[in-house]
């Protein structure tokens, strides 16, 4: 158990470090915490926020938004990116921005509005020399501190729909279940196609991005019904909510279903595709998508379910995304045979 002791000692030492930090707040983001091969025990050690409770970021930590976001039981998600001073992200067409080593992507999940807002967890993706590392931090009841929770956990929350649910904070491995491609951890959200051109232009202007990515801002805005044709909205939804697993090299690769934005083959997208390992998830249906028949499509059946073993996505949500189901239903209903 020697190493067990060592970890305890490291934890104690991290605590001491955190206390020291709080006594004399550093001026900037703690780049060592991002880069070093360790798991800081508290979110405070990184120094991303001037006021973490209110999610006021320090200079250099930039908030961003996505045109079409991932559904997470209706949680408010506050996203930030930190790119080290003097470093530069590279445009990669409409795809993921290529962030330099030292980058941190920060995402806080919250429920409730105004005074009632309760922070649940902050997930970090840290770009280290050996690749990206995903770490979950869980906020305490007092909302004074977010501590590393490698094993994740559950907590009761009330969704915007008024439903009280047992909300799952993912464990460290589950981070990789969604963020893994070809056995490496990668970011999912910050793809140029799903980000505002204005925001990206700002990043270029400040020197943190090498140039304006081609195909930026090409995905529709989820919250604006008129922002794009039905098919694009449905495909954007599937890309953002499903394709991190349902693509080659990722967690659900063995299903043969590929829901990425760039996929054009109808069969790969599920049209008249038979299930492989759906089990009772098939709901008695024969195909993932039957054009014109959402009620006969396994995809819709699984999106409508909140039961583990049937529900899709498997991770990151406990409730049904009614708006998401509606758009995919309409897309399938209008699909020509």
């Amino acid at each position: 158990m020697k190493r067990g002791f060592a970890i305890l000692a490291a934890a104690a030492c991290a605590l001491a470090g955190a206390m020291a930090v709080r006594a004399t707040p550093p001026d900037g983001v703690n780049e060592a915490a991002i880069l070093e091969d360790a798991m800081p025990r508290t979110l405070a050690e990184y120094g991303f926020f001037i006021d973490a409770r209110e999610q006021v970021p320090r200079e250099g930590v930039t908030p961003y938004w996505l045109n079409t976001p991932l559904y997470s039981d209706g949680a408010d998600k506050l996203r930030f990116v930190y790119i080290p001073d003097g470093e530069q992200a590279l445009a990669n067409g409409a795809d993921l921005l290529l962030f330099p080593v030292g980058t941190a992507l920060i995402k806080t999940f919250a429920f409730g509005r105004g005074e009632e807002r309760r922070l649940i967890e902050t997930r970090l993706l840290l770009h280290r020399e050996n690749g990206w590392v995903a770490l979950p931090y869980r906020w305490n009841e007092e909302q004074t501190e977010a501590r590393l929770a490698v094993a994740g956990g559950r907590t009761e929350v009330t969704t915007p729909a008024g439903e009280t649910i047992s909300y799952r904070i993912p464990n460290k491995n589950q981070c990789k279940e969604c963020h893994g491609v070809d056995d490496a951890v990668v970011p999912i959200g910050p793809k140029a196609r799903n980000m505002s051109a204005t925001w990206l232009a700002g990043l270029v202007e400040s020197g943190s991005l090498d140039r304006m990515p081609a195909g930026a801002n090409s995905m529709p805005y989820w919250s604006h019904e008129s922002s794009g044709p039905l098919e694009l909205r449905a495909r954007a939804y599937l890309d953002v909510n499903c394709a991190h697993c349902h693509r080659p090299g990722a967690t659900a690769s063995n299903s043969g279903l590929d829901l990425r934005w760039e996929q054009r083959d109808p069969e790969a997208l599920g049209v008249m595709k038979r299930p492989v390992a759906a089990g009772r998830g098939s709901g008695g249906h024969l195909f993932d998508i039957v054009p014109g028949e959402p009620d006969a499509s396994i995809m819709v059946h699984r999106m409508r379910s909140s039961e583990p073993g049937v529900a899709m996505p498997e991770l990151g949500k406990a409730t049904v995304d009614e708006d998401g189901v509606a758009i995919v239903e309409r897309w399938i209903a209008e699909m020509r045979r």
Binding site: M1, K2, R3, I7, A9, A10, C13, G17
Partner: peptide, 18 residues
């Protein structure tokens, strides 16, 4: 102690039982 502990975490050690 911290430095030692961090080093111990980082270095491959003999197999352990959890």
């Amino acid at each position: 102690l911290c430095a030692a502990a961090v080093a111990a975490v980082a270095m491959p050690l003999a197999a352990e039982t959890h």
